[in-house]
Design a binder for these strands. Structure first.
Lengths: 245, 245
DNA sequence: GGGATAAACTGGTAATGACCACATGACAAG
DNA sequence: CTTGTCATGTGGTCATTACCAGTTTATCCC
């Protein structure tokens, strides 16, 4: 056993346990496809109830680290499945995970009245104003995507260029400044062709094929908070996703 | 209260309860954004323990029907979020859900030695044979995608054209005939251009932009079972996905 | 040796009871 | 009226106990 569970810690026990077990998996101490100790054994080892054990295991199972077979045991997932790609992540984390150095150029931050279709998706009345952020996404310093975000904010809330350049992450700002946690999102992907303006910004030819990614993000109260449109260079970007039944 | 829980039923109580609650939500009896009864109240109403209540609620929460707010209650999700799109579904279900009549032409079913890159992804030794299925996917009788599946099967297992035409679903065959349950998958999406052959099959011009969807599917034991490549017409298909944190 | 059976595992479901953390509203104090 | 406090209701965490349902292994019997 590597670490122990601290009963006085404010972090829940099941979460502490999950962290410990995840470490054992990621360090290779427990090999893929091999069974981990049984729930009754873990109960003894870590001196917590089976309730807690199962809560931790279920958490790791949902993240793709473990899988269970009734009557046989709980097993470590093959490494390929351990990368939790099913989650709602930002562009930044996404590229980092793939070994590409992410970067961005903020082209503009302003307040506008967006097209009606976008207002409707954000569940806002006509002529409402929202924050618009236009960015160029970079991978290893090469432009790979044009991103336009429309963010629903309350009257007294705003985000500045300085905020964005300080953290680089819109999601972190939303969470830390306004307590808004992006929790769910609907996303679509389709093919389009570059307009001359888009082509210039992406340093490609007009009519070159692009991957169009649209996303509507909801917060922890299931209110739409952000509509995003990203145009990716077709030759430099690939969208990756994990699906679970 | 509509239905009751049958304690003698082989179906677990939490699952029975989840079905009942899901019906109340889908029928509109419980409106979006309104709180459902508290866990203590449901305990009394359905005469089961809070353990069971919470198991049912957690299940529905993961499916997107409910969301919780600590200290406030459990709420019905907005309808848009109730469609479980994050799941591993087949092409058929996918189109049906979007109101398009799905169809397919099975172009060929045979056994081949696939390219090394595919063998590697299926974790098979060089020169292994796999089942190849080539299909044209139709939406409202128009070709919208070319699908090539490579399926890992044991020596004594095979799938025939008749099997496929009977059910139309490869996944159902895998499950019912061999007990293989597709559980997880890694998927990528990118842009390519149509070769002359592909263009002919899809009734489009050569070099027209296509959406390339590759998928590696794993079974309940986390073994790769199927590699799929689908080429969609860029002007007739849009990929839709739900993301959850 | 072969085959049926039973014991000893595994995870899955369920009940009960306790306490904690957070949100809300009633109410008293200023 | 405003502010702070406290009671109450909500979901979140945890321990304990019991039994069920699959799987594997040992064992007995032929």
């Amino acid at each position: 056993m590597s670490r122990r569970i601290d009963p006085t810690n404010v972090v829940p026990k099941y979460y502490q346990l999950a962290s410990i077990l995840r470490d054992q998996i990621e360090s290779g101490e427990w090999a893929p496809r091999t069974p981990i100790p049984s729930e009754r054994q873990l109960e003894i080892t870590y001196d917590v109830s089976r309730t807690t054990i199962r809560q931790a295991l279920e958490y790791l199972e949902r993240q793709g680290f473990l899988y269970r077979e009734h009557g046989r045991g709980t097993f470590v997932s093959p490494q390929k499945l351990q990368k939790g790609m099913q989650e709602l992540t930002s562009f930044t984390e996404d590229l980092q995970r793939r070994g590409i150095v992410p970067g961005q150029l903020v082209r503009s931050v302003d307040t506008v009245v967006p097209p009606p279709s976008i207002l409707q998706r954000l569940e806002l009345p006509p002529d409402s104003k929202v924050l618009r952020i236009e960015r160029t996404r970079l991978g290893d310093d090469i432009p790979i995507g044009l991103q336009t975000s429309y963010v629903k904010l309350a009257e007294n809330q705003t985000i500045t260029l300085q905020d964005l350049e300080a953290t680089g992450s819109l999601y972190r700002i939303l969470q830390e400044k306004f307590g808004i946690i992006p929790t769910e999102a609907d996303e679509t992907l389709e093919v389009t062709l570059a307009t001359p303006e888009e082509a210039a910004l992406l340093q490609i030819k007009p009519d070159a094929p692009l991957l169009l990614n649209e996303r509507l993000t909801y917060d922890q109260y299931r209110r739409p908070v952000e509509y995003v449109k990203i145009l990716y260079r077709g030759d430099r970007y690939r969208y990756v996703i994990r699906l679970t039944r």
